[in-house]
Structure formats: structure tokens, C-alpha cells
Design a protein around this nucleic acid. Sequence first.
DNA 1: AAGGTGACTGGCG
DNA 2: TCGCCAGCCACCT
Length: 122
Amino acid sequence: MTARSPAKPRGRKRPAPTFASRVCALVRRIPRGRAISYGGVAAILGSPRAARGVGTALSGVEPDRDVPWWRVINRNGEISIKGDPILAGLQRRLLEKERVKFDRRGRVDWESFGWRGPSGPK
DNA sequence: AAGGTGACTGGCG
DNA sequence: TCGCCAGCCACCT
């Protein structure tokens, strides 16, 4: 192995995946009936302070896309969509449809429905 | 290429 | 607990 090529033996340099695409890839793995915060997604992706970026990315996800964007909520367990009550309502219904419960204040209990990532507990 | 926006957060009163 | 505020970041002009 000392004979390794000095140059990059690797084929062409693949275009770096955009942050948004990485967000989608992870979100696609959130199990049904579970939820995670924007900051949680950011942390798992290795950018613990990019919570805002996660929100930006998800806001661009097309509805007919197979990305369960509704499983991502804010740190308080609340629906965080602003400026579009219709969409916010849809998110809540989609979660409830998979049995995620909202308390009286409209919050989801992390202990019961939180997803800790691919490497975390089931 | 620099400035504006917002589906975020942690810290503090 | 709740509201407010200043960072922080990826996107879009």
C-alpha cells in the first residue's frame, strides 16, 4: 500500500450534495409515528447550528415528494410553520394520522414520540 | 457577490 | 413557563 497513487485515484469528483438534499435523505428515514426537531436534524447532519437551514430546506420540499417533512417540528414539540395556517393544520393532521399525540397546548411529547436518529434507540 | 429572509435556538428576565 | 432577543445558517435575489 505504499504504492498508493499520490494523485486522487478516485474517479471524478462528485458534486457535493446540497445541504437540502442531505436533510431530505435523513428526514426520509424518520420512522412513522415519530418526530424530531429542526435542531435535531441539523445536529445529526453534523451542523448543530443549522436548525434554521433545516427549516429553509424543508420549506422547499415539494408536496408530492416522498419526504415526510411533517415529522420535523420545533424544539418545544410544536408545529412551527408560520404564515400558512392551512399547511400548519395539514402537518398536525398528518402527524395525528400516524398516532402522534398533541397535548392541550398543542405540543408533542419527546419522551413518547421523539426520534433520536439512525444510530439512536428505536 | 453582498444583503435580506425565515418551517430555529439558547439564554435571560 | 413565557416572551423577547441576538446569534447562526442555508437560500434567494
